[in-house]
Simulated scan of single mutants.
Amino acid sequence: MKTHHIAKQNSILTKFLAELRDVTIQKDSMRFRRNIERIGEVLAYELSKELTYTTEEITTPLGTKKATLPNKDIVLCSILRAGLPLHNGMLNYFDDAENAFISAYRHHPNNDEEFEIVVEYFAAPSIDGKTLLLVDPMLATGRSMVAVYQGIKKYGTPKEIILVSVIGSVEGVAYVEKHFPENTNLWIADIDEKLNDRGYIVPGLGDAGDLAYGIKL
């Protein structure tokens, strides 16, 4: 797996990341969602450089011009609910992509720190032979991304898999690298060093779903 760590190079992306992490700015849930959306736009632009393109001739009011355009085979799949703002940001750029949604959550059967990932809902077009963009803002343990991939596989085989995240941990990146096909690409804004005993990224930013949409039961 090839990992593209975008925040290693300074850009406006680092400002959006700083605001996401800032406990004061996080109180504005609308701005939190918008910052994730803007990061999605940055990541979409960066990964678009690695897509396959074809040359087409377009007609202008005064003539014709050859243009290179990305192949229209993208399925953009987000993990609910935290993935929605990131999905919207990427959809702003890949506006002709097909869309898919899948649910995944941490289930604590013994009401302690141990958990399992439960995948219940999947709505998608055909993914066979297409470029699958699998979107989840937080790549903590990596178990959600892998569980989702295992659930999706029975519905078809994509031509290519691209993982997209905002913040991940070193451990989470290593975990998905071990469980995804070798030709998978990970595009991630930033990578933090560790997880706490509850499996949350440190320093991270907290619970992205709660910060975007409110505390759940």
Rank of each mutant, 00 (worst) to 15 (best):
E113W: 07
P203H: 03
E171W: 00
I191Q: 10
R34D: 08
I191M: 04
K178D: 03
T3L: 01
T24R: 12
Q26R: 15
D210A: 09
E114H: 09
L86T: 05
P203S: 02
N183V: 01
H5L: 15
Y105S: 12
E113N: 14
Y149F: 10
V202N: 08
F101E: 08
A147Y: 08
N110Y: 13
V119A: 03
L134M: 02
M145C: 02
D73E: 06
A174L: 05
R106C: 09
A44Q: 14
L91E: 15
R33M: 12
G172F: 04
T157K: 12
E114G: 01
A174G: 01
L84H: 00
V118C: 12
T3P: 00
F180C: 05
K154N: 09
A123G: 15
Y213M: 02
Y155L: 09
C77I: 15
M138D: 11
R33I: 14
Q150M: 11
H107R: 10
S126G: 13
T68Y: 06
K154A: 08
K66F: 02
L47E: 09
M1R: 01
Y45C: 06
F32M: 09
E116Y: 01
V119D: 00
N71H: 05
K72C: 04
Y175V: 02
S11R: 14
Y200E: 07
K15T: 14
M1D: 02
R143H: 12
L20S: 08
L134H: 00
Y155R: 10
L186E: 06
T184E: 10
P181E: 01
N196K: 10
V42H: 04
A174H: 03
I79L: 10
C77F: 10
L205Q: 10
A147Q: 07
K178P: 04
H5F: 09
I167Y: 04
L69P: 02
L211G: 06
F94P: 06
M1I: 04
H107N: 13
V164K: 06
G63A: 00
V146K: 14
P70C: 07
G199Y: 13
K49R: 02
R38M: 14
P70W: 08
V146L: 14
N185Q: 07
R143V: 09
A174S: 06
E113P: 00
D197E: 15
N111P: 12
Y105G: 12
D190Q: 11
L76H: 08
R198I: 05
P137Q: 00
A174W: 00
I188K: 02
D95A: 15
I152E: 01
P125Y: 14
A44E: 14
N111D: 15
F115S: 12
